[in-house]
């Protein structure tokens, strides 16, 4: 130590070193807390998106909750979009391009998926709606995207989604002029560990 900091006894170095260690540890703690916060951002971001519907994250409700919603007289157009990630040998497409649904009323839409490969493949669908501000008001009751889907070679299935558009969409100044909501799915092959 002697050669590094002023060595002789006239400086108040020894108590200062203990103090430095304490301060240093405190700020090391701050850095570690920020590191933890970086990881915590993952679930926090997801929660934030789900609560606010930001980034076009859709909402989820039970059948009971859905039947409690009052249907309005107004209609809104819903467009359906399907994508398959690079490398997943599936065909996946909506069976209807658009639907004109009553706001507040349950509606059913179907997608068709086919496994073109000669092996079982499990896929997961990620989804969002656009315009993004509509996410808060697009509620799914049942969806093939809630679980993983496994298709046998050559298997062709219909995949249903039951949803409703929350009547509150008509009250929000950011969303009341929306004429059409697009629901988009992208299928990815589930990670095999």
């Amino acid at each position: 130590m002697a050669q590094t900091i002023a060595p002789s006894g006239n400086g108040p170095n020894r108590p200062r070193m203990a103090q430095n260690t304490r301060t240093g540890l405190i700020f090391l703690g701050v850095a570690l807390a920020m590191l933890a916060l970086g990881y915590a951002a993952v679930p926090l971001y997801r929660m934030f998106c789900q609560v606010t519907g930001i980034d076009g994250t859709t909402q989820r409700a039970s059948a009971a909750q859905a039947s409690a919603v009052q249907a309005t007289g107004q209609r809104i157009s819903v467009r359906f979009d399907g994508n398959v990630a690079n490398g997943l040998p599936w065909t996946f497409r909506p069976m209807q391009t658009t639907s004109n649904v009553v706001i507040g009323e349950k509606a059913l839409a179907k997608y068709e998926a086919r496994n073109n490969a000669a092996r079982d493949i499990t896929g997961t669908a990620v989804f969002n709606v656009s315009p993004v501000q509509a996410g808060k008001y697009f509620t799914k009751i049942e969806c093939f995207c809630f679980t993983e889907q496994t298709l046998k070679p050559g298997q062709d299935v219909e995949m249903p989604v039951i949803y409703y558009v929350d009547p509150a969409i008509l009250e929000d100044p950011d969303t009341k002029d929306i004429e059409q909501i697009t629901l988009s799915y992208s299928f990815y092959e589930s990670e095999r560990l």
Partner: peptide, 14 residues
């Protein structure tokens, strides 16, 4: 540095 870099560290570790 103290507040920003750990977040980068977390992100690039992910």
């Amino acid at each position: 540095l103290l507040l920003a870099l750990p977040v980068l560290a977390a992100a690039i570790t992910m």
